[in-house]
Design a protein around this nucleic acid. Structure first.
Lengths: 136, 136
DNA sequence: TGTTTACCCTATTAAGTCGATAGGAAATAT
DNA sequence: ATATTTCCTATCGACTTAATAGGGTAAACA
């Protein structure tokens, strides 16, 4: 299940991308327009900023704005930042690999093979979509 | 992230499928062989039995056994029974549809379109795999 | 018939996560 | 200076998950 954090983050990014100019947009405006708790959105935008997708400006007339072009923001990286691993099981994660505690041997694990297929098909979808594809 | 319940359930099903005959296998044997908490596995096998994949036999020499052929047990339905909805968002779920509380209009939701793609690609993987594909 | 074996069922718990909230600190514009 | 808006930390309640406990019930076998 997709977390609210990710969903809200995607909506906020899309909202910013749909703005014609790159003037700062206040958190309150985004929260109101997208039905998001303002404080919660605050923390989400903060992590997106730290990752380098968003710029921010404090004080009056401040807010958040896109730094990169929407087409240059692939869903793969956005999803990893907001949601974490794309793989359903840590032992098939490319960026967040961990050994499964209950598996003595990955190669002989029946679930392993299936989860690799799911991971790859999901990665293909995210790889084929950028923020530009979420715009109007 | 795949729940332990689902992972254990898949492993147990695979274990039973790999048995040459269809003699009952005790919970304790499966739990030991697959590194699963016995009591936890007990409840998982119970739900799989209620769904119609497994038969059980009580008393001495009892246990669980496959009812259907592995090739006739598609991952799609197994995953839905164990894990629940395949879609990442309820508003794109085919079998567990629910309206998203924060979305006034699905058609104009930017996340909606993306999640449909993910759902379809995942469904294709599960549709192409049956329990037989998880066997040795 | 009695006893063992193993499934069946309910309740509980410890730990973790998630979404949200609160309160203030720091920076910027007027 | 003062109002405005982002920035940061801390906390909370509700929910879920994985696991455990304890006993009940049915079937097989001697």
């Amino acid at each position: 299940m997709l977390s609210k954090k990710t969903k809200y983050g995607l909506k906020a990014l899309t909202y910013l991308a749909n703005k014609k100019d790159r003037e700062p947009v206040q958190i309150a405006e985004i929260a109101l327009h997208e039905n998001i708790s303002q404080k919660f959105l605050e923390s989400i935008l903060l992590t997106l900023r730290k990752t380098g997708y968003l710029g921010s400006k404090k004080g009056k007339g401040g807010g958040y704005y896109l730094i990169k072009e929407p087409a240059e923001i692939p869903m793969t990286t956005v999803m990893r930042v907001l949601e974490g691993p794309i793989a359903l099981v840590p032992c098939v994660s490319l960026n967040f690999y961990e050994k499964c505690s209950d598996c003595p041997d990955e190669a002989s694990c029946s679930v392993h093979k299936l989860m690799i297929q799911v991971r790859d098909s999901t990665l293909e979808v995210f790889g084929n979509n950028s923020l530009a594809d979420l715009m109007d």
